[in-house]
Simulated scan of single mutants.
Amino acid sequence: MTTSIPAGANQSSSAQSKAMVDYNSFLKLLIAQMKNQDPTQPMDSTQYVAQLATFSQVEQSMQANTKLDQILQASSLSQATSLIGHSISSLDGEVSGIVKEVRVFSDGMVAVLESGEQVLVGPGISITAPPAGDTGPATT
């Protein structure tokens, strides 16, 4: 079985570190703003709290998106492995055969058949279970 790691699989850690950099930058700017404000006309403390709360919401949304991306990647890999050994037919019916391997990309999956032909896994394809008693492709 061959599966490719989706493009962008390593982006979650860089997105997290970027979020932390942005969060740290925000805090530094907030502290600089507090230090350099005019003492005779200080900024209202509720404005600080509102800025911090808004930024916290954005950070939480970014973390939720990262988790959703991880769930989608795991789902794609699970779906890919379940196709191996099954019979698949393309949308137009011109390409069909038994799935030998599945290649997972960031924008979808491609099933490689025993004949070497490739079928884009997407809407309209036909997938059937292997015959009873067949446990999938033979391994050598």
Rank of each mutant, 00 (worst) to 15 (best):
D107H: 06
G85D: 04
S89E: 04
G124A: 08
Q63L: 15
F105I: 03
G124K: 04
G97K: 02
V104N: 01
A80S: 02
K67W: 08
S82L: 05
K100A: 15
P130Y: 00
L52E: 08
T66L: 12
G97N: 02
V110Y: 01
F55C: 05
L77C: 07
S126F: 09
Q79Y: 13
L68D: 09
Q60K: 12
L91Y: 08
A50P: 00
A74I: 04
S82Y: 01
E94G: 12
S61V: 12
S75F: 10
V102S: 00
T54W: 04
K67P: 03
Q60D: 10
S76Q: 13
I84S: 02
Q79E: 14
G122D: 12
S87R: 08
G85V: 09
S90G: 04
Q57K: 11
I125P: 04
S89T: 06
V102W: 00
V95E: 01
E117T: 05
D107I: 06
I98G: 03
Q60Y: 07
G116Y: 03
H86V: 02
F55V: 05
S115L: 06
V110A: 02
L91M: 09
L83R: 10
A53Y: 09
V58N: 10
L72H: 03
Q51N: 10
V49P: 08
A80Y: 00
A74E: 08
V49M: 11
Q70E: 12
S61A: 15
T46L: 11
A53N: 09
